[in-house]
Design a protein around this nucleic acid. Structure first.
Lengths: 145, 145
DNA sequence: CAGTATCCCTGTTGATACTG
DNA sequence: CAGTATCAACAGGGATACTG
């Protein structure tokens, strides 16, 4: 899907020496920011997956609806505080939806909304890119700081 | 490109109700982590673009080689300290390369390596995903915290 | 079960000033 | 030009304990 494993920089294709904007990388005005503006699409996407554990919670929810304790079981070392925080963020951003189940014992289910499912290609792209980086330098020099 | 506008979650397609792993989302063992492991491909990719300003510095370098002051001019509100820090991180990770130019005045140029150019599809994916999110909820509820 | 409430600690950022 | 040094301020994360 993604051409990330070419060895020759030039063969990778897209680098230009012009000082103009690259239409594929920066298709419109919102991408030409001189600062990290919250409404830049890149910042919007980063905000959606920001925070430790968020991508893992998203991965779990990509598989279908999950209850609070199913999520805790899948991610045992994630504290209740942070899980709650992440689920609140996701619901506040309209990426997930909370559903009360009136049963005994009472349960709460979380499922992704259509907008949340839109993050799926991004997670796949992150995985592919990370795998390509690991391949291109099997021994990473060092984790900075 | 991204199917984010379907109203029915079921119709959006990929969500399965199985508790097994999704081969497209989690192709191999490294993606089945129960914690944010540094060697999970997703974490590797996130680490590569982590830090405020990093995606903007990458955007500039995607256009070709840039000197320290060209970068400062393109991103005027980015302090020298942080720019230096970002450039060090990128070079330490093998994503960028530093080149001394013996001239007068002496200059230093930075350009992306092949590994750095491999981040291009990710930046594009971030942009597209963010744009799709902005479209699907024109008025984002609220920036959490 | 599904959360809240505190406290503390650490990393990251940014402003400012200085240097080879 | 291309950085480094220092410091102050803050936000995020985790441990622990408690609740409707």
């Amino acid at each position: 899907m993604v051409h990330a494993d070419s060895q020759d920089p030039r063969a990778a294709g897209h680098q230009t020496e012009t000082h103009g904007w690259d239409a594929e990388l920066v298709p419109d005005e919102r991408g030409r920011t001189a600062r990290p503006e919250p409404d830049c699409p890149v910042e919007v996407a980063l905000a959606a997956i920001s925070g430790r554990w968020t991508t893992l919670v998203l991965r779990e929810l990509m598989h279908g609806e999950r209850t609070f304790s199913e999520l805790r079981a899948a991610l045992p070392t994630l504290s209740a505080k942070i899980l709650t925080e992440r689920l609140h963020e996701l619901t506040a951003r309209g990426l997930a939806h909370r559903e009360q189940v009136n049963a005994f014992p009472p349960r709460v289910g979380y499922r992704l909304t259509a907008a949340g499912l839109a993050l799926r290609p991004l997670l796949i792209c992150l995985y592919e890119t990370g795998a390509a980086l690991s391949r291109s330098r099997a021994g990473t020099p060092a984790p900075p700081r």
